[in-house]
């Protein structure tokens, strides 16, 4: 009896916590499964796609669904399913690139502004405000115009446009965290600013960032598709979902069904990122009740 009282309450391990979440939140679990499947398919693309993405078979131009071409073919007779798989790889890469850049810029800037306060905060906040008054894709197009057309340039600019959103979020969170007792304690024990930021502020300010990053991945995916649709992102003949839509639109009157595969792919992937983000928001928030 005494043993049971003395023994500290066993906290569930990370894995069992994950399993519990997976079972309790079906929508989030489904989204995560979808995204993992998409990732695996993209990585395995070269081995599982039925054709090379640029292989032309003019006899099959604008073919409808068949056993040879499961999702049909575009106006140059390129297999739609293969291009969808390869385009997915490009889209995922582009989204992660943009969001990584946004995190690398936004998080440190937000933490510094929030922790240091004073004129540093004032200056950084004004810069954040200025960047936030740029409509996102418009600035990305302008940067592409300056740096030259290309996926990497486009996604770097999308990342730069997203960074202020993260910075503002992290700044607000840091403002709260820096006044917590444990930060005061660390300071009293003579912890350096660098150590306090890394060991105490960052881990406690990062949680809303995880949610926001998931939501930004959806936004980055849509931005990449938009840029490629406009011809400012991934350049033909390299496949991209946005580029496929642009081609399908030109041939809409002959083969309208070619609009569906890339459009639905963008829709479902963005939906999965958003749904996962909302699930994470609930799962990570200790103040919200879990059923």
């Amino acid at each position: 009896m005494t043993d049971a009282v003395m023994a500290p309450e066993r906290r569930p391990g990370r894995f069992s916590g994950f399993v519990r979440w997976f079972v309790s939140d079906l929508r989030g679990a489904f989204s995560l499964t979808f995204l993992v499947a998409l990732f695996v398919i993209s990585v395995l693309g070269p081995w599982i796609s039925p054709y090379a993405p640029a292989a032309q078979d003019l006899d099959a131009a604008l073919a409808t669904m068949s056993t040879q071409h499961w999702l049909g073919a575009d106006d140059l007779g390129r297999d739609t399913l293969s291009r969808l798989i390869y385009g997915g790889m490009a889209s995922l890469y582009a989204s992660f690139l943009a969001v990584t850049i946004a995190v690398l810029i936004g998080v440190p800037v937000g933490i510094l502004a929030g922790y240091l306060g004073g004129w540093v905060d004032a200056v950084i906040s004004r810069i954040i405000d200025s960047f936030l008054s740029f409509p996102a894709i418009v600035l990305a197009i302008a940067v592409t115009g300056a740096l030259g057309i290309g996926l990497t340039n486009g996604m770097i600019s999308v990342g730069i446009v997203f960074a202020p959103q993260l910075a503002r979020l992290v700044r607000a969170r840091t403002l709260v965290v820096r006044n917590e007792l444990y930060v005061d304690a660390a300071r009293c024990f003579g912890g350096s600013t660098k150590r306090i930021l890394w060991r105490h502020v960052l881990p406690n300010a990062i949680q809303p960032v995880i949610v926001q990053v998931t939501l930004l991945l959806a936004a980055a995916l849509l931005a990449e598709a938009s840029l490629s649709f406009l011809g400012l992102g991934i350049q033909p003949p390299d496949p991209s979902w946005g580029g496929m839509l642009a081609r399908a639109y030109q041939n809409m009157e002959i083969a309208p069904e070619q609009m569906y595969p890339p459009g639905l792919a963008i829709l479902f992937t963005a939906l999965a990122f958003n749904t996962l983000g909302e699930s994470l928001r609930v799962a990570l928030d200790p103040t919200m009740k879990r059923n």
Binding site: L245, M252, L267, N274
Partner: peptide, 22 residues
Amino acid sequence: ASLGVAVPNFWLGMLLVAFFSL
């Protein structure tokens, strides 16, 4: 609402053209 946030505007535009115009 979830669908509305995730749907690419330009793809929706294409669908609208296909249905209401063509």
